[in-house]
Design a protein around this nucleic acid. Structure first.
Lengths: 142, 142
DNA sequence: CTCTTTGCAAACCATTTGCAGCGTC
DNA sequence: GACGCTGCAAATGGTTTGCAAAGAG
C-alpha cells in the first residue's frame, strides 16, 4: 500500500517537479484518470508541464508496474494507481464512472486445461458493467 | 446461433451489397477483427466498399446487439460476432491472438450487495491474459 | 418515390515521436 | 558534468462527420 509517490521514491525513481506532480495527481482511492485529466490536474499545480511529459511519465509508471492501464471505459485509456492490490472494476454505462471492487472469494483461479487452447494464463481482468445510482434514477445523467 | 447474416435477414435488416459483405466477413468462430481488417476482407469481395461504410455498418451491428465490441486488445477496437452465447476472451500478450472460452461453471453471477456501491449490474466481462503456444516457445513471435 | 445508405475527403481525438535545451544525480 | 527528462510541434493511427449522389423497399 502506501501512496504512489512514496513507493516511487523508495524505488529510487529519478525525481523532477513534473514527475512528482503526476504521481501526486494519481494518489488516492478509485482514481481512474485519462491522460488529459492527469494533464489538467497537473497543470493546476505546475503550469509549465507539457502533454508529452504526462504521456512519457504515465508510460513509465505503467512499465514499472506501479500504475495500471484501464481500456474498458470510453476511447481514452485510464490510469489506475491501485496496482498492488488485485481488484476489479465496476463501470457505469451511463456516465463512465469507475469504482474498484474486491469481491471476497477470488473466483478467478484460472481456466480448466481443456479451455486453455495451450495458452499460459498469467492474469485475469474482470469488468462489471451497469448503472450507478445517479444514472439509474435519471437516465439523462450521462 | 446460426450465422450473423441469417439473423440479420430474419430481423428485416435493410440489405445492400456492402452490408451483406460486412456480415459475411464477420461469420465464424473466434472472429475478432479490427475495422481495418474487416475493410480489407470486405474489399477483397467488393472493391468499391468504403471505410466509412464499414464503420457505419459495424456501429449499427453493435447497437443492434448482433456484434460485440472488444477493446481489450491493442489500440483498435475488435468486433466479435459471437454476441448471443455468453463467453470470455483469452488474449495472447505476445501476438494479440484472441480465443473465445466458455468455462463451464459461470463463476461470475454478480457482486455481493456490499460491493456494488449502489450500482445495478447488468453484465460482466472477463479477459484472461497470457501467452499462446507459439509465443511461449518463441518470445520473438510477437 | 422516398428515405436510407454510400463514398469521398476532411475533421477529430488520443497518442507518439524527433530533437534541442534544461536539470537531476 | 553526463545523461536522462522536458517542451514544442508536427506526425500518426483510429474513428467520425458532412454532404451530394446512388439505391433499396
Amino acid at each position: 500500500m502506501s501512496n504512489l509517490l512514496e513507493r516511487l521514491r523508495r524505488r529510487g525513481w529519478r525525481m523532477t517537479a513534473q514527475r512528482r506532480v503526476v504521481a501526486e495527481v494519481l494518489s488516492g482511492e478509485h482514481i481512474h484518470l485519462t491522460a488529459d485529466e492527469v494533464l489538467a490536474r497537473a497543470t493546476a499545480r505546475l503550469p509549465e508541464i507539457s502533454r508529452a511529459t504526462v504521456y512519457n511519465t504515465l508510460g513509465e509508471l505503467v512499465s514499472l508496474g506501479e500504475v495500471l492501464e484501464v481500456s474498458s471505459v470510453g476511447r481514452a485509456k485510464r490510469y489506475d494507481p491501485n496496482a498492488h492490490e488485485s481488484h476489479q472494476h465496476l463501470v457505469c454505462s451511463g456516465c463512465g464512472a469507475v469504482r474498484d471492487v474486491r469481491p471476497e472469494g477470488d473466483p478467478l483461479t484460472g481456466l480448466a486445461d481443456t479451455d486453455r487452447f495451450g495458452f499460459t494464463v498469467t492474469a485475469v481482468e474482470v469488468t462489471y458493467r451497469g448503472l450507478c445510482p445517479e444514472c439509474a434514477e435519471d437516465p439523462e445523467h450521462a
